[in-house]
Design a protein around this nucleic acid. Structure first.
Lengths: 143, 143
DNA sequence: TTTATATATATGCGATTGCATGTATAAAAT
DNA sequence: ATTTTATACATGCAATCGCATATATATAAA
């Protein structure tokens, strides 16, 4: 026999998806309003900056960001076109390449963070306590 | 002075967006794999079915689903083209119209629900308890 | 070695999105 | 009554998405 999800599980599911989308859109709008690129640019650049070398293979970025391969390929294309990353050839495996963050990319991160942070504050921090945020993070981490 | 969001708030934010997207994509994939339309179709039809009359104005649907106007307009277009809703003219306000769910639309809901429910179960219910789901829902409800 | 298979990345194509704007009608202001 | 403004909905366009597939190289198998 099939076990249906409980009412509360369905409700949590719906809220999770809806609020996740809403809050994301809010932040995207804030960024756009400030003349800044979308969050995916920030996330990718942040992953690169976390590296000692400031570099990652596309497939590594892909895994960390949980993005589809075609999506990452195009994201890198846009970032490169805008000068925020550079594509470096990779001798050890000629199928591949290495993506490195540029100075402009690092600078973009510093320009985006204040807007991003403020958006998070207004759309999340002001509405729930840090304790609640911790609980939220713990439960979401199990999914 | 500017108050930055706390580390835990940022973490909760990131998890909320990421997990929301991941779980949504999982369910969408399950639906597609079963040859069924996307979730937005389900949501819209569900809102219509909730009504005694099975009907709503587009702008009402828009508010309930928190979708942009242009998005709703096109969603209705696709639903109508597929025969799941019908557009009825509205005499009281000739700018507007009324959207009504069809029998095919009601039947689609019954075909989608098992797949949808199973997806929620596998992607959410199996990973957190009902108590946790309740906490999740409560906190998300504050956003 | 050839040959087969797997991995890394790119891209053509049709569908969808977001934005801005268009059309039509209603309500408010003058 | 005329003009202005607001509301309801649709749509052209450019950007992006998702899918399938292409290209190139590496690895494994025969």
């Amino acid at each position: 026999m099939i076990t249906r999800p409980s009412k509360i599980a369905v409700r949590a599911w719906a809220l999770l998806v809806k609020q996740g989308q809403q809050i994301l859109q809010s932040v995207e709008r804030d960024l756009k309003a400030a003349g800044l690129p979308p969050l995916s640019w920030y996330d990718a650049l942040l992953e690169l900056r976390r590296e000692e070398t400031g570099q990652l293979r596309p497939f590594e970025l892909e895994q960390r960001m949980l993005l589809a391969q075609y999506h990452m390929s195009r994201l890198i294309g846009r970032l490169a076109k805008a000068g925020y990353v550079e594509r470096l050839s990779y001798a050890q495996d000629r199928r591949g390449q290495i993506i490195g963050i540029t100075d402009a990319g690092r600078f973009l991160l510093t320009r985006m963070w204040p807007v991003y942070a403020d958006a998070i504050r207004r759309h999340l921090s002001e509405k729930i306590s840090d304790d609640e945020a911790a609980v939220l993070a713990r439960i979401l981490g199990k999914l």
